[in-house]
Design a protein around this nucleic acid. Structure first.
Lengths: 341, 341
DNA sequence: TTGTAAGCGTTATCAT
DNA sequence: ATGATAACGCTTACAA
């Protein structure tokens, strides 16, 4: 105890825990220094558990992912988010605790108390798709600050931050319209994840906003794009006057991939005969090719925004973090449509 | 409290916290069920903070890197280590607290006592090159469990885990000798990091072990391999009877890079005229080419071993984790030497 | 301005 | 087999 070293007692607490009230310092500068000095020489650090137990705060923010946070397959990792999470947490004065256990089941992956350990922190960030709803809800109901990284509107009351796919997609459509394209087709998979429906909404809104006919624009759906998006179908669209295609980004990149191969097989030149855009980033194995027109998801910023929101909740604020904007990425796959005979 | 719901008291603790001792259950099955039922209906979960406070153990392992744990440049990241660290920590029931050299600013400024923040964990893992020796030593002297990832013998008393470069290099030399090579040259930079000298030692030991003459074998050193490792020099070696070259792996991959370019410029065919081996993994930008003969550093295993050692220290054991073995990687860059006229 | 004392929710040690 | 009760290390009124 620094108490013995110095001369005081739980005065230590007062000097070591700056009240957020700002002017809460009712400690004489002298004792303050004495305590600080003693703490330093003893290498004393307040126990986070005790601190939290005493109904105070730890300065610890949790990160919990439902799969391993560091999967062996680097492609699928949350790394880009973590970059922002770490930076923002540091900037805000929080340390990060990475709750393990979901990864291997070692320390209790399942069970009703799988999530209970996160209560050690002041609040917790959740990343990943397979969220145990009940547990999360329980946490929220208990007033524990929780933020989900990625849109999660079905989980009532769970705060989240996400990327603004609607606006970003609108922007891509706007770009095409500006180039002179009048008929555009959206290629998407048959899936109703928010990430997917958001893009479709943005696509339609984009058409409306630029005064393009939304009627004739086809929305392509398929669980098996390989088979459905045939070169013939593509060619038919082009013959009907379609000059641009936009594909959504998915885990597998299937939509984009099948679009590319259909274009190739149909012998169409890009961007000569058709313009192509990708609503997101290309899959890793296509990363070496020049990046197509589209937008980038600012993952580090998303991570940072999530931390900011979480910190606000921890501080008892009612803060609401808006959607994070994606950034438009110009590319060589779009150009003005060729004049038609 | 489940206490009220059920009928008992801190008996709850007994049923909710299975002792690792195995047969610690001295609770009647009836009460046991009653408590379990009450807990479930109330949605009761033990408070981790209180739990850890009482147990005088936080189940927290620190991870301290002297740069950001998640650098923006993924190339230099500790990701491969982290994979193992996370997995092992989870398996052992520990959560991870992430500290960063730059970021400790939040709760404690980047002063000389920045490192003392790690004391909030039960022990701490250090990763990276720029270790503040004094601070680290202080922690160790205070009996705080510390493990350094990567060999650090100069830091007296600091536990560490590292890769067995000596053995791995010996193995590569053995492989070449087995193929029939008699004169082998080691290409290394002029640097005396353990990672570098270990390989040299392994190289020499390998020669001795296989009965090869170590005298005529040249050890190439250069701070500027570009200039020193000329195609002419290479050609001269080959004319003298050298049939194989092994290069060390470094941050920049300079040794391997200059070896490759010298071979190319000298117009030598690999593995026809010379066999090449790399003592480690190729730099990221050369990753697409077929992997050369050499060995892989099992980074995840290293991370796991470090955690294991740290956990042992935390538990008060005197454990000693041996060097982690690298795994030999056969490749297309080595072949039996061509018969000489 | 600083010391005193009452918890915070568990675990652990005794008694029962 | 279970119920009291004292820590655990800290925060926080409240008293001095």
């Amino acid at each position: 105890m620094a108490r013995l070293a110095g001369v005081s007692q739980a005065t230590v607490s007062l000097v070591l825990s700056p009240k957020p009230d700002g002017k809460g310092r009712i400690i004489s500068e002298e004792t303050r220094q004495r305590v600080l000095e003693a703490a330093r020489s003893l290498g004393y650090v307040p126990d986070p558990a005790a601190r939290r137990l005493a109904a105070a705060r730890n300065n610890l923010l949790g990160v919990f992912s439902f799969t391993a946070t560091f999967p062996t397959d680097v492609q699928h990792s949350y790394y880009p988010f973590l970059v922002g999470v770490e930076r923002e947490a540091a900037a805000l004065g929080y340390d990060l605790v990475l709750f393990t256990g979901s990864s291997t089941g070692g320390a209790g992956a399942t069970g009703p108390d799988a999530l209970s350990r996160v209560r050690l922190a002041d609040g917790c960030l959740f990343i990943g798709r397979h969220t145990p709803r009940a547990e999360l809800k329980r946490l929220v109901e208990d007033g524990f600050p929780v933020v989900h990284l990625g849109r999660r509107e079905e989980l009532e009351g769970v705060a989240w931050v996400g990327a603004d796919y609607v606006e970003a997609t609108r922007e891509v459509v706007g770009h095409l319209a500006e180039l002179g394209h009048r008929r555009i087709v959206l290629v998407r998979e048959d899936d109703d994840a928010p990430a997917s429906t958001d893009r479709q909404r943005g696509f339609l809104e984009g058409l409306v906003a630029t005064g393009l006919p939304s009627g004739p624009t086809a929305v392509f759906r398929s669980a098996d794009p390989q088979r459905e998006l045939s070169p013939e179908r593509l060619r038919a669209w082009v013959d009907e006057g379609v000059t641009a295609f936009v594909a959504e980004e998915t885990d597998t990149g299937a939509a984009w991939r099948s679009l590319l191969s259909a274009v190739r097989e149909a012998g169409l030149d890009c961007p000569g005969e058709v313009s192509l855009a990708l609503l997101g980033s290309p899959p890793a194995d296509l990363a070496s090719e020049p990046e197509p027109t589209g937008f980038d998801i600012p993952r580090p910023q998303l991570g940072a925004a999530a931390v900011r929101l979480l910190a606000a909740l921890v501080a008892g604020e009612e803060a609401r973090e808006p959607l994070v904007s994606c950034v438009f990425r110009p590319g060589p796959t779009t150009a003005p449509p060729r004049a038609r005979p």
